[in-house]
Amino acid sequence: MADSKGVLVFADIVEGKLAGITTELLGCGRQLADGLGEDLSVALLGSGVKGLAEEAIAWGADKAYVVDDPLLQDYQAEAYLAAAQKVTEEISPKVILYGQTPVGRDLAPRLAFRLGTAVSTDCVELAIDPDTKLLLQTRSVYGGNARAVFTSDRMPQIVTVRSKSMSPLPKDDSRKGEVIEVAAGLDPSMIKAKFVQKVKEEVVGVKLEDAPVVIGGGRGMGAPEGFQQLEALARLFKGAVGSTRPAVDNGWIPSTTQVGLTGKIVTPDLYIAVALSGSSQHMAGCSGSKTIVAINKDPEANIFREADYGIVGDWKQALPAFTQKLKELLA
């Protein structure tokens, strides 16, 4: 791909809508494309997704490539990979951006291996090297203990981007762009891993990723009952409860609440970390919070190196008093 040109964003589409990460990818992709002086394209893969093209353009794309096919109704990797390969070969981009989402983290490495190129997953910073014009791909490694900057001179340079690590541009509905429909020639026989059905875990109250306040509970909660107290505190704020991997692995709370490297990424205004040590794996999911408060009985716990405010003490004594005082203040 000697004549590679431009930046291509693969949109993340959830239940027929552009996911928030897609607007972040387009914001970041716009900057990279402008840095290279080249076009930003977006690929929309799915069934009944053509209508999203204008919106993707409004978020910063110059061109929208649409593969609209009933075989892309649900995520079936082989069909998605064939469509992604088709669009990539059509455009020959220098840079491809995916979200680090259930689809992106699955599909981007497949595409890279298929094309014989490299991919950096879960990037938190991206820039164009002024000398080589290559993409500098910064990702967190060793469970968040270190960061690594990668480059690859094989085209396309593929990355997946951590959610909420990039900012969208203001939406501009007057932006004009080109919409190109691509026939990917998909065939049911190419699908080996077949989607059967999706089982949704119902969320009561506010969605964790969108909550303005998140109360995170860790190993020190000791039992499922403790999380009910966190729920009560979360309701005061119209917030949501998060958790660490040890809490989930102990079966105290559903895995859909897990915050961290292998869970959800949250960036609330306020994150209250209760009885959790603040391992780098957990902080990878919440360090972007505006204010972090720690309640932990171990003064040496790493969470006190991450928090803005903290109290040293047993959560069982702290939480009722904290909740009571808040009720008074918020009344």
């Binding site: 995520y75 989607f195 999706k198 875990e201």
Partner: peptide, 12 residues
């Protein structure tokens, strides 16, 4: 297969 809001059942 784990996804953000639950899981998918896949035959392979």
């Amino acid at each position: 297969r784990m996804v953000a809001d639950g899981h998918e059942i896949v035959e392979v």
